[in-house]
């Protein structure tokens, strides 16, 4: 009789328990992977702006539109005023440009879908990274080749720390004109990002 109980627990209950735990863990891990890591998110934007055309073919520098990236914590999305610098004349008969001009003249801000987001309790500072020479494509991928922008890099804290601890290996592109030697190991103390 005694043997039976242990036998039963070992042969039946334990495998079932292990299976359930592993299954739940695996399902949660894989189902939440996308939300956790964010890679692959490619939402539809209100205006079908193509980075491939502007940043890739026309070779417009990222900082022409995202002008405050060197001066502030945020890399600002350009207001339609910047677009109208060219598009008050260029291709103004195209449907997307007409949409854009409509937004501009009516004074309604464009509600872009946010793709890259660091959670609210972590404070990421663009200018600190950009001013050291870390090129935009290190984290945002090859935007100049994207028709529709998608997130290509893992935005979990693990990925940030990988780069902070080992910038030599992780940083592939340096902004032209900046010295790679400027980049030291990034801060790894909590208060660098968590206030």
């Amino acid at each position: 009789m005694k043997n039976f109980l242990i036998d039963y627990n070992l042969k039946v209950r334990l495998p079932i328990l292990l299976f359930v735990v592993l299954a739940v863990f695996a399902i949660t891990y894989y189902v939440s992977y996308a939300e956790r890591v964010g890679v692959g998110y490619q939402p539809v934007q209100p205006i079908a702006y193509s980075h491939k055309l502007h940043a890739g073919d026309l070779k417009i520098d990222c900082r022409y539109c995202h002008s405050d990236v060197e001066k502030s914590r945020h890399a600002n999305i350009p207001s339609p005023k910047v677009c109208m610098n060219c598009h008050s004349i260029a291709r103004k008969d195209r449907p997307e440009i007409i949409k854009l001009t409509d937004y501009y003249t009516r004074g309604i801000p464009i509600e872009w879908k946010r793709i890259h987001r660091v959670p609210d309790f972590a404070y990421f500072n663009h200018s600190v990274h950009v001013n050291k020479g870390i090129d935009c494509s290190n984290c945002h991928g090859d935007i100049a080749a994207m028709e529709v922008v998608e997130q290509v890099k893992d935005f979990s804290m693990r990925a940030c720390l990988d780069c902070h601890r080992n910038p030599d290996q992780t940083i592939k592109n340096i902004t032209p004109g900046k010295d790679k030697k400027l980049i030291n190991n990034g801060p790894t103390n909590c208060s660098a990002c968590h206030r």
């Binding site: 939300e35 600002n76 207001s79 464009i110 879908k113």
Partner: peptide
């Protein structure tokens, strides 16, 4: 969509002297 990260809404006509975030 659990992936939804909200919207980013810039100025419509950003004054030049304003740096967002500063």
């Amino acid at each position: 969509n659990y992936r939804d990260k909200g919207e980013l809404i810039p100025y419509n006509k950003k004054p030049e002297s304003v740096t967002v975030g500063n």
